[in-house]
Write a protein that binds this DNA or RNA. Structure first.
Lengths: 339, 339
DNA sequence: GTATGGCATCTAATCGATTAGACCGGAGGA
DNA sequence: TCCTCCGGTCTAATCGATTAGATGCCATAC
């Protein structure tokens, strides 16, 4: 593997001149410039990233923290992040925390080692606040994407979860439902909380008292949502919720399957909605009505913002709220055309 | 940000001693050891990765190349890779090539810059062979996972695609089908080719002549598979294939939806199978019979092998073939129990 | 009392880039 | 003719770690 010295020797110039040519940092006479370029080609030279990074104190790498890349919410966001990063010459470290603070600690450590120049955090728990704040205190760029973390002084790109909750509830209300349940996420999830708040607001506006049993927290996964739906299915038909809004599409799939297993027809006996608009929500056999979350856009904007932050002096924190929209399909029974 | 010199000064020892304590490379007296540890804690010291990397010529990072992380095949594999890497103290660079050779070139460049110590490649095209071989020629560790690349002298962890093709075809044959089609992937995909080869072998063993129109190459995506199924649906019922094997589950979803749109019942009018066993294949509304590909295991073993390669002298190339298995659900009509 | 050896620790070279500041030669002005 | 200035290029310091080899101290042996 050749070094800058080899190039300098081969081209008959100094290492400084080689560096000037490679980085375009000073004028170099055409003749020497050409000799440098030729030497680079001939020796197939690629500069060493560690040496460069040590000197200029940057790694040209950003970190992306997700709780679990195999959760279908994240791949689109991760893709956006990588697309943008590539474009700007940055690499992406992917870190799955599995919601363990230990993993977040490792990520923060990578930041302090200088392995990454900035961090995009899609899932930060309460327990991670102090850790992330310690980075921010050192002026290390951190952008929250998707999930906010109250009390953390970082940039935030999120979608309009409150509006999403309203949209969902109003859709059900417009279809004539009154007993509308909301299968929320785990207690303390700010995403879930905002969506529930929107739902509650819409219900209030409609003059409906929301029964405690209608808002059931739990894991936004298939299995747990399935179980929660089974509870509803076992209630008497005249008290059972006629509409179920789910905090995630994956959870909605569990609800759909539980309903079918219990002999309830969708949408005749129960209307079902999700959140996210995953690819699978569009399948003909599913056709889930849902609130679309702009996942790619979340990742794109978070990465653009992070890269803007890197190297720049501290600026005003940004808080971007992306619009969401209702995607009407079949599971609430109101599809317009092709049924 | 403090450096090793600060720690040395603070603890009243030399930088060498600090390094010995931190890396456990030489005996250090308990008293100095403790002073070093105290200084590290007090100054909140974290060693600089670039400086270390420059000196010892390693980045403790590996690269993972996928064609597109938003293709649901890859997240499980990527997760496995990251899980194993974390465990060994390595970070993971995720690189989406989108099947563009340009992106592969960037990845190879990262390797040569020393940004990564090894590379896991899940999708290498013919066009990438030379590039990857150039890495191997420099003794840079490369492991192919999932997709082989003929003529490349690298380690390979794949699943038994040939056996999978046989399993699928035999299942259809056992159910009494004779006109069995195989919607394959794009021409030149070795994964698809092996699966088709297994299918052809099973058909041969059953004494059935496979019509050219039964093996339709195309993109293994939803839309393209949908279109191909439409073609079949338009054939006369007595010549139309009664069974469709798909090279991917996502493609099978397209087939399922096309069949439904054309008024064909599954499995009564057409039996449908996929490959992969994605999470969505298990949904009640889908219940896709498929050949399970051990995605997590693929990623796990590839990463373990890669890490074994890194730093070790050149050893014999390994070729691991993981077993696949048939997952019988509803789309071929032979489900045993809970239908 | 001096020589020997071993052990803990130190000094300084090194990795491969970037870049501040020195240097040198030629042009232009006095 | 001499001085100044400027532009092109060079030398060498620097980033922060690791580690080879030097050093100095102390115990033991003669």
């Amino acid at each position: 593997m050749s070094t800058i010295k080899d190039i300098a020797r081969h081209a008959g110039v100094s290492v400084a001149t080689v560096s000037y040519v490679l980085n375009n940092t000073r004028y170099v006479s055409p003749d020497k410039r050409e000799r440098v370029i030729a030497a680079v080609q001939e020796l197939n030279y690629v500069p060493n990233a560690a040496a460069r990074g040590l000197r200029v104190r940057e790694s040209r790498t950003i970190g992306l923290i997700v709780s679990d890349i195999s959760n279908p919410f994240y791949p689109d966001l991760a893709k956006a992040c990588e697309d943008v990063a590539q474009q700007y010459g940055y690499a992406v470290h992917m870190i799955n925390t599995n919601d363990q603070p230990e993993r977040m600690r490792q990520a923060v450590s990578q930041a302090r080692e200088g392995k990454i120049d900035g961090l995009i955090v899609t899932t930060a728990l309460e327990a991670d606040r102090e850790l992330l704040q310690s980075l921010l205190d050192r002026e290390f760029p951190v952008v929250l994407a998707h999930r906010r973390l109250e009390g953390l002084d970082a940039d935030l790109i999120e979608s309009d979860n409150y509006e999403g909750g309203m949209l969902a509830a109003r859709h059900m209300l417009a279809l004539g439902h009154r007993r509308i349940a909301f299968l929320s996420g785990v207690a303390g999830s700010p995403i879930s909380e905002r969506r529930v708040a929107g739902y509650l607001q819409a219900m209030r506006e409609a003059g409906i008292d929301v029964l405690a049993e209608w808002v059931l927290p739990g894991e936004a996964k298939y299995a747990n949502s399935y179980e929660r739906m089974v509870q509803y299915a076992d209630m008497a038909p005249d008290t059972r919720p006629t509409a179920i809004i789910n905090v995630s599409d994956i959870g909605a799939m569990g609800v759909l399957d539980a309903a079918a297993d219990r002999g309830l027809r969708v949408p005749e006996d129960v209307a079902v909605m999700g959140f996210d608009d995953l690819f699978l929500a569009a399948f003909r056999s599913v056709r889930l009505t849902t609130v679309r979350i702009p996942r790619y856009e979340l990742g794109r904007q978070a990465t653009e913002l992070l890269l803007k932050r890197i190297g720049k002096a501290k600026t005003e924190r940004r808080h971007v709220v992306l619009p969401v929209d209702l995607v009407v399909r079949k599971t609430c029974g109101s599809e317009q055309a092709d049924g």
